[in-house]
């Protein structure tokens, strides 16, 4: 079971990812982040969690203890009761997948990932 019930919803290309807030270092607009002069590996994903080149994203999310970041269209902080989060069915698991749980969110399904696992997945893309 996940340990933290405060999450950030990261939305891009009609995909919702739910990551524990404690796994995120910072969320900034792309223009502000650029001013910091930080050299991060920035990933832009489509709904299949594969790299894309679209420029719809306004925000950049930097994962804790890494210089790995993800571009997002929307970022929202939410509190979720652990009982609402359901483990991904064993039949749906793949070893390369960063997704561990699912939850309903705004009539959609959000995929729950731990920050470290998501970073590991991104670095293998």
């Amino acid at each position: 079971m996940l340990l933290n019930n405060i999450y950030l919803i990261l939305k891009f290309d009609d995909r919702y990812l739910l990551v524990p807030q404690s796994d995120i270092e910072l969320v900034e607009t792309i223009s502000t982040f650029t001013q910091y002069g930080l050299e991060a590996m920035v990933f832009n994903l489509n709904k299949d969690l594969l790299i894309q080149n679209s420029n719809q994203c306004k925000f950049i999310v930097l994962f804790k203890s890494t210089m790995v970041a993800l571009l997002c269209e929307e970022v929202e902080k939410i509190k979720i009761d652990e009982t609402e989060i359901q483990e991904l069915s064993p039949v749906m698991r793949l070893s390369k997948s960063p997704i561990t749980h699912l939850v309903t969110y705004k009539d959609q399904i959000a995929c729950v990932c731990k920050g470290k696992t998501l970073v590991k997945y991104l670095l293998k893309l």
Binding site: K47, L49, L88, S89, M92, L94, I99, Q108, I109
Partner: peptide, 25 residues
């Protein structure tokens, strides 16, 4: 039906049934 990324092609969708998220095979 909702598609879930990074899942096997034979079971890459889910549906919501009675507040449960079910795999669709």
């Amino acid at each position: 039906i909702f598609e879930i990324p990074c899942t096997p092609k034979y079971c890459n969708q889910v549906l919501v049934f009675q507040d449960r998220i079910l795999p669709l095979l």
